[in-house]
């Protein structure tokens, strides 16, 4: 099987984010970048399919920064090779999707995997855009996947339940948490990762569809409430926990 996993380099979820001096980007100084957590589920699923059916796994990223570090992570987990498309500036989802589609259109991938979203800009758009551009079916937020030859059965999370869909390869899949338990890269595989190839592909010029005007940090609006130990205060705490905070 010929499998592609599109990954993205995002700030560590535990990192404290500051807005950069231009007001449109985050200040990357001191920020630790990681492989997008949802992409780990996508990678794990592709690697498992390869281990079961044979074939190759390629990891791909489009990034304005040097993203070879996260590609090495993908290679250490078990991808065989990687493609790095370096964008001249922070690309929007449309540009990323075009670049992915353009670079893989002749490569005959059976399945193209994505994380359901990148935890930086959370646009949720890239998997469906890529599928549309390649004119292949796509299914999003997949929490269970079965592949038999060209037949693909995917279970996806929907509001309050599950939906099972059937589609055929080639297709695009976006992975939800719970699809699998991503592996830790083993030490010998970490060592081998540096010997695996990362191909650099030139950025495909297409205009951005969305322009970021400004970004801002959420304002913390939580206000504390101090109550005493009188009966009425206790009643108020119980009411507040029930109705305002809705925690019990």
């Amino acid at each position: 099987m010929n499998l592609l996993v599109c990954v993205s380099r995002v700030p560590d979820t535990a990192t404290k984010i500051f807005v950069g001096p231009d007001g449109k980007t985050i200040d990357s100084k001191g920020v630790k970048y990681i492989l997008n957590p949802y992409d780990e589920f996508a990678l794990e699923e592709a690697i498992r399919l390869k281990e079961k059916n044979g074939g190759e796994v390629t990891a791909l990223t489009v990034s304005a920064d040097d993203a070879t570090d996260i590609l090495r992570n993908a290679l250490a987990m078990g991808a065989d090779s990687a493609i790095f498309i370096k964008a001249p500036a922070e690309p929007d989802s449309y540009q990323v999707a075009h670049n992915i589609a353009n670079s893989v259109k002749d490569k005959n991938f059976d399945l193209i995997f994505f994380g359901r979203q990148s935890v930086d800009f959370d646009s949720f758009q890239i998997p469906s855009m890529v599928a549309e551009l390649l004119n292949i079916p796509s299914v999003s937020v997949v929490s269970k996947l079965e592949v038999n030859g060209s037949k693909v059965i995917a279970e996806r999370d929907i509001e309050g339940g599950k939906e099972t869909v059937e589609l055929s390869t080639p297709c695009a899949i976006s992975a939800q948490k719970g699809l699998n338990e991503p592996r830790y890269p083993k030490l010998p595989d970490i060592m081998k990762a540096k010997k695996k190839p990362i191909e650099e592909v030139a950025f495909f010029q297409v205009d951005a569809a969305v322009e970021v005007i400004s970004i801002a940090l959420p304002v913390n609006k939580r206000v504390g409430k101090i109550l005493g130990d009188s009966d009425s205060d206790i009643n108020e705490i119980v009411r507040s926990l029930h109705e305002d905070a809705k925690v019990i």
Binding site: D69, R72, N73, A76, Y184, P185, L187, I190, M191, A193, K194
Partner: peptide, 15 residues
Amino acid sequence: TEEQTMLREMVRDFA
């Protein structure tokens, strides 16, 4: 090195 950093991250995740 990049490998040493990956090693650290893997062991930290595991731990």
